[in-house]
């Protein structure tokens, strides 16, 4: 399954990729902000999105909103720190299917991904 990771922090991207590979997902592409994420998405084949919120150019919320405008079904997981509740509610309303709080364990990520696929 091809997963698109959108995060402006290269360290975070590596961490997510590393975690994903531990739980059996190795087909991963990366983008460093929402705009780049949309480009990557446009190239096709992406089956799930894992996105950060705070990013330059286009943040996660705007990115999700744009994605949802044309793709209502692709599972989207948002990676957040323990941000304010209203922020997470806003993200969920914008079309995020689930969120995972940093720092997460491989098990938590796996659980969240499975909940999206299930």
């Amino acid at each position: 399954m091809k997963i698109l990771i959108v995060d402006d922090s290269s360290t975070m991207r590596r961490i997510i990729i590393n975690t994903l590979s531990r739980i059996g997902y190795s087909d991963v592409i990366e983008a460093e902000h929402g705009k780049a994420g949309l480009e990557k998405l446009g190239q096709g084949g992406v089956e799930m999105i894992i996105t950060d919120w705070n990013m330059p150019e286009m943040d996660g919320l705007e990115f999700v909103t744009v994605v949802r405008g044309s793709n209502p079904s692709i599972p989207i997981l948002m990676v957040t720190t323990n941000a304010a509740k209203e922020d997470i509610v806003a993200a969920l309303q914008a079309g995020v299917n689930n969120y995972v709080v940093k720092p997460f364990t491989p098990d938590t990520l796996k659980e969240k991904i499975e909940s999206l696929l299930g």
Binding site: D8, S9, T11, M12, I15, D52, N54, T81, K102, P103
Partner: peptide, 9 residues
């Protein structure tokens, strides 16, 4: 935020 996020891991 970025520093915090990565440092947690």
């Amino acid at each position: 935020h970025t520093i915090k996020g990565a440092s947690g891991f």
